[in-house]
């Protein structure tokens, strides 16, 4: 794999893979344009590593038509590339339905047991509804308002989810808002009344499911010692027989110290026929060897998916679908997440945070109930690309500046980048760019 850069253009030549041919894929970072370039042009660019976001020195050659073509492309402005600037306005919230769980996952970032350090049973629906009414009242007609139900384990309290879901649908219709619901669950409680309640809602369902039975049961053990995977499979079979109103069933798989066979996990999870699978690297994992396996596994997955079913199969990997969509619509991302701008986390006590991982960190609270601390939020008003010093990185408008929680976890400072995060993000984007070029060059 050879990676080169000239100002705001990078190019990648794949000389090792069988699936990706050895043509050269180029990407204009601020125009979000993808192209194929010839070897002569590639030779006018400077070699860089995937670890850097800095701009290298130019190889100036004004006599060369290839160099001049490159310089001209670099200076072009693409009128179709849309800004990703985000004005303040809460459009998306994550709700901790509770802060208790029936599992104790090895890498759990919610205090190790789903409690965030403060075990809390069901959130008060009575307090939550006026809080949601307050947020809905400032959403404009026609806009989307998204709620993700998480925990703890949200399906320990399905009736609370249903009550909130029904209320938001009714309120949204008053304001002509489009509500969107998601539940992130460990998938072990999908039976009986919970199954019926799930089927009655138009939700995107994400099951945290790390892979093969062996891998998943080690990474995600249950507190009572029973097999997590067996319980998921029972619930999944019921859902696949009849999913009711559920709009999608997705898996989210975590790569962690005990679980690095990413490709084997993909083959197993794919056999269960979900609508999408996402492969996420454990937030707090700091071992470069684990990351290397994650990157290599993901590359193998993409090659397998592309060979098996082209773009359609490739886009069942959720992050690939996301990048394809952003490239197709030439929509820049200037914020990796909406923290402090359009997103809030509501914990099981109705306290508010700008990040899902801040729950229970008192100093990070940005309000409670219907009160918002605008002074604290204003510290996040600039784009994350700017706040995290990503202005020269070629991946900035697809990545959006990275994750402040991971930065803090790795470096003690939410604006100091995690090198591991940057490496795996750039590596995946490079792969996606090569497949995107293949997909769009084949169907111009």
């Amino acid at each position: 794999m050879q990676l080169r850069r000239f100002k705001d253009i990078i190019a990648i030549k794949n000389d090792t893979g069988v699936v990706l041919n050895d043509t050269i894929t180029a990407f204009h970072a601020s125009n979000l344009e993808v192209a194929e370039i010839d070897q002569e042009t590639f030779d006018k660019m400077t070699e860089i590593s995937v670890f850097t976001g800095e701009i290298p020195k130019d190889k100036i050659d004004l006599e060369s038509s290839a160099f001049n073509a490159l310089a001209e492309w670099n200076s072009e402005l693409n009128p179709d590339a849309k800004s990703g600037k985000m004005e303040f306005g809460i459009r998306s919230i994550t709700l901790n339905v509770n802060q208790i769980c029936n599992l104790k996952c090895a890498y759990c970032a919610a205090g190790g047991d789903g409690t965030y350090g403060t075990p809390t049973t069901q959130i008060s629906v009575e307090k939550t509804l006026p809080q949601l009414k307050y947020f809905l009242s400032s959403v404009k007609p026609g806009q989307t308002f998204a709620i993700s139900f998480v925990g703890g384990e949200p399906l320990l309290h399905p009736k609370a989810i249903k009550a909130i879901n029904a209320y938001v649908i009714t309120e949204s219709s008053k304001y002509q808002i489009k509500p969107k619901f998601k539940i992130v669950t460990n998938g072990t409680l999908i039976k009986d009344e919970t199954l019926e309640i799930l089927r009655s809602m138009n939700v995107d369902l994400t099951i945290s499911f790390d892979g093969t039975k062996e891998a998943n049961d080690i990474a995600r053990p249950s507190k009572d010692g029973s097999s997590t995977t067996e319980k998921i499979l029972i619930g999944l079979a019921q859902l696949q027989k009849n999913r009711g109103q559920i709009s999608s069933i997705n898996f989210s798989a975590i790569t962690s110290t005990t679980n690095t066979n990413v490709f084997e996990n993909y083959i197993y999870l794919k056999s269960l026929n979900p609508d999408s699978i996402e492969f996420v690297f454990a937030n707090d994992e700091k071992d470069p060897a684990v990351q290397q396996k994650h990157i290599e596994g993901l590359n193998k997955i993409l090659a397998h998916a592309w060979t098996a079913g082209g773009e359609k199969e490739l886009r069942k990997i959720k992050s690939v679908d996301h990048y394809f969509y952003m490239l197709d619509n030439q929509q820049k991302t200037e914020n990796f997440c909406g923290a402090g701008k359009n997103y809030l986390m509501v914990d099981a006590k109705n306290k508010l945070y700008s990040c899902v991982w801040d729950a229970n960190l008192k100093e990070e609270s940005v309000g409670s109930n219907e009160q918002l601390d605008h002074e604290k939020l204003s510290k996040l008003s600039k784009s994350l690309i700017e706040l995290n010093n990503c202005n020269t990185c070629w991946a900035r408008f697809l990545c959006g500046g990275g994750c402040m929680h991971i930065n803090r976890s790795h470096n003690g400072d939410k604006h100091k980048k995690s090198i591991l995060f940057c490496e795996r993000t750039r590596s995946l984007i490079l792969q996606v760019l090569m497949y995107y070029k293949l997909a769009r060059a084949a169907n111009p």
């Binding site: 180029a26 344009e33 993808v34 192209a35 194929e36 370039i37 010839d38 002569e40 042009t41 038509s65 290839a66 073509a69 490159l70 492309w73 999408s276 959720k318 679908d321 996301h322 394809f324 969509y325 952003m326 490239l327 197709d328 619509n329 030439q330 995107y436 070029k437 769009r440 060059a441 169907n443 111009p444």
Partner: peptide, 13 residues
């Protein structure tokens, strides 16, 4: 001839 841009398909998660 050095650079051939691909065309996006205008019409995610």
């Amino acid at each position: 001839t050095h650079i051939k841009k691909v065309k996006p398909h205008k019409s995610g998660n």
